[in-house]
Nucleic acid binder design. Structure first.
Length: 349
DNA sequence: TTCCTGGCAT
DNA sequence: ATGCCAGGAA
């Protein structure tokens, strides 16, 4: 039996029953695929249900505000996915009369939809024979064929996509694609792959050569930079001072506390005497300090401390127009990075 | 603690 | 080539 037939046979027996596998609605499939980018099924599943329920079709999604989308997205990470989805929903309403596209060539034009997602939606919704190549497929192919090209090298995507397109079952592209990913995810998993029960074991190059632990090869990522965030918590009359983050940095359009950033770790006492702090708050009394709290992103390590201060609201200078007072009760409607909402949740309760 | 996983945009 | 996020595993 051929490689792909083995994998499909395994899939039909072992597949998980996931909600987006029981539909050919490209909107629902798109929803699930974007949520599942860089995200585990178990983590994405509750978000998928929330989005599918609140926005049953692309028109409801497009009618929402970006704040509403990001609020529902809160905690999932990679927030550009949420922002791009919002723009894409509006593109679909305007350019496609509300009919979500299902052909690869149209899908690839949408914001946040790259080669993988376009192949996934077009094959699942319209049985287009485009091979999906996600992390699971990279790993499975690298091992089975003993490919030593690092999967994050510049040419890797070309090489693996070409191979996957040769292997795809042209008669059942949707099942073929699902099967490859599910097999990679559950059987040929990153750590401790289940070679003992693997139907591909006899022909697997990595297994035969004892290379399952080192394949796929991956170039080392560079070190991350340190950033020191001193957040200022100012409560006044049941209101809290917030900042909406802007472009060209992490957490775009999300809400956080007012922030003094420094290049080194600084004591809270030094922070309140910086020009940036004085501009915003004038003189203030430090009531307490929490931290440091470390928060790791792909290329940055955030060292945060939270400085609780006391001052008179009237003295606060809101000249930075991204600063504003919000009702505490309003907080749950404003999307915040995990670092912020975890702290506020703990502090305010 | 540290390490690792995971698509797209620029 | 590099930045974006969170959480599970080691």
């Amino acid at each position: 039996m051929s490689f792909i037939d083995e994998v499909i046979g395994w899939y039909l027996v072992n597949k998980r029953d996931l909600p987006w596998r029981n539909t050919t609605d490209p909107y629902i499939i798109w929803l699930s695929e974007i949520i599942l980018q860089q995200t585990r099924v178990e983590q994405g599943l509750p978000y998928f249900y929330r989005f599918a329920e609140k926005y049953p079709s692309v028109s409801e999604f497009a009618a929402a505000t970006e704040d509403e989308i990001l609020n529902l997205w809160q905690g999932l990470g990679y927030y550009s996915r949420g922002r791009n989805m919002h723009r894409t929903a509006q593109m679909v309403m305007e350019d496609h009369a509300g009919y979500f596209p299902k052909k690869y060539d149209e899908l690839i034009k949408l914001k946040g939809v790259g080669e993988y997602t376009a192949a996934a939606i077009s094959s699942f919704a319209a049985n287009e024979a485009k091979a999906v190549v996600d992390g699971n497929v990279f790993r499975l192919l690298a091992r089975y064929f003993g490919i030593e090209e690092p999967i994050n090298s510049p040419k890797a995507k070309r090489v693996f996509t070409a191979l996957a397109n040769e292997l795809i079952d042209e008669k059942n592209p949707a099942t073929s694609n699902q099967a490859l990913m599910e097999f990679g995810s559950l059987q040929c998993r990153p750590k401790n792959p289940l070679c003992g029960s693997c139907p591909l074991q006899p022909d697997c190059e990595a297994f035969k050569k004892g290379l399952t632990d080192i394949l796929p090869l991956k170039l080392k990522k560079q070190v991350s930079r340190n950033r020191y965030f001193s957040y200022v918590l100012l409560l006044s009359d049941g209101k809290i001072l917030l900042n909406k983050r802007g472009p060209n940095d992490i957490w775009q359009n999300l809400y956080e506390l007012p922030l003094i950033e420094t290049t080194e770790a600084e004591d809270a006492l030094n922070i309140v005497s910086t020009q940036g702090f004085r501009d915003m708050f004038g003189r203030a009394e430090i009531k307490s300090v929490y931290g440091p709290v470390r928060h790791v992103l792909s290329h940055q390590k955030i060292h945060a401390q939270f400085i609780v201060i006391d001052t008179i609201a009237g003295q606060v200078d809101l000249k930075k127009d991204s600063l504003f007072f919000a009702d505490i009760a309003q907080l749950e409607h404003l999307a915040q990075p995990k670092l912020i909402f975890s702290f506020l949740k703990k502090f305010l309760n």
